Simulated assay, not measured.
Amino acid sequence: MMSVCGYRWYPEYTVEEQYRDFNQRQYICTVRVFPDYPGAEKPIHWSYGLGVTVDMAVQDAAYSMLTIMRARHALLQNSELCYVPASQSGEEGYISGVYFDSSMEDPLLQSTVEMLENRDRDARALRMELYATRARLWTALTQLAPVVQTGYGEMEMLNPVRTHLPAHVDWPAIGGVTPLRGPLLPPVRGPRPHPCPYGSQGS
């Protein structure tokens, strides 16, 4: 799609970890698309993705960018990418899907187009449900923490283990050039109720 639109064939991804207590950390990915001419340093398009793993955040950002580009480029309507779902900014800042009437398509393709649109709706709905549920869980664990810390419960209650997906349904590896993990942020001043997941930091 990027080659058809006249952009560099490789985008640029930046992933940042958002530390949250109770083993609820998540990652936010920013993807930038640059024009395909020498010396271009400013991106034309950028989008964001959210995930509970690095791979999930990158895949979310890539899909979001794909649907945004599909909505903004009319020339894709007459290409092999015409059935990719499109999206535009919607309520509360979410990227909402934009669908067309598939009844005018070739009968052999009509059911395929409908399936793509339904899977896109499923993915968007499940993503919103996932992060709304995680926010409610974090609130509940915050309220539970004082009770556990006084000895009325096991500490494992405050750090639930994330679900590990089987290999055949896990997110695919993102590939590309991945630099080493950068330095940790400076230590937080004042009391911190929960340890950093990567161990204690030096002064």
Rank of each mutant, 00 (worst) to 15 (best):
Y99T: 10
R136N: 14
T163V: 12
Y94C: 10
R70F: 01
Y99S: 12
G93R: 06
P172D: 03
K42N: 11
M104C: 11
M128Y: 13
R121V: 09
Y83K: 02
D106F: 07
M69V: 15
Y83G: 01
Y152V: 03
M155E: 10
D55A: 12
E105C: 06
P85C: 05
E105W: 02
E91K: 15
D55Y: 02
Y99P: 08
R70H: 06
R162Y: 04
A86H: 07
I174M: 11
S87W: 10
E117F: 08
R127F: 04
G176A: 01
W138T: 14
L144S: 00
P187W: 02
L108V: 11
P172K: 05
W171P: 07
N159W: 12
P166Q: 03
I95D: 15
L116Q: 00
D122H: 13
G175D: 07
W171Y: 11
W138E: 10
S102R: 05
A135K: 09
L130C: 06
Y99G: 06
P179I: 04
A135P: 00
Q149P: 00
R127D: 04
A145E: 15
P187R: 10
S96V: 12
R70Q: 14
L109W: 09
S79Q: 07
M155P: 14
E117Y: 05
R127N: 07
A125L: 10
L130R: 15
S96D: 14
R162S: 13
H45L: 13
G90Q: 09
A57L: 07
C82L: 00
M157R: 09
T67R: 15
D122K: 15
P146W: 06
C82H: 02
Q88Y: 09
Y48V: 11
A135Q: 10
L109T: 10
P107I: 06
P183Q: 13
D120Q: 08
V177R: 15
R134V: 09
G49P: 00
A61M: 07
S47M: 04
L141A: 08
V169A: 09
L130D: 03
P43Y: 13
W138K: 14
A40I: 08
A74R: 15
Y48F: 13
A61Q: 06
V113L: 10
S47W: 12
L130I: 03
E117G: 03
A135L: 07
E117T: 02
P166C: 02
D106H: 12
F100N: 01
F100R: 06
H45M: 06
S89Q: 14
Y94S: 11
A86C: 11
P187K: 12
L116T: 00
A123H: 05
W46Y: 15
A140T: 05
V52R: 15
Q143N: 06
V148R: 01
Q149H: 12
G97F: 03
A40M: 10
Q149N: 12
V84S: 01
L130E: 14
Q110N: 01
H73G: 02
A173H: 09
P187G: 01
G49M: 00
P146H: 06
R136Y: 12
M56N: 08
H73R: 03
H168M: 13
Y83H: 13
Q149L: 15
C82N: 02
A57Y: 05
N159H: 08
R119Y: 02
V84M: 03
Y94R: 13
E80D: 06
R119C: 03
Q77L: 11
A140V: 03
V169Y: 01
G175Q: 13
G182M: 09
V177P: 03
V177T: 14
D106A: 14
L50V: 10
G90E: 11
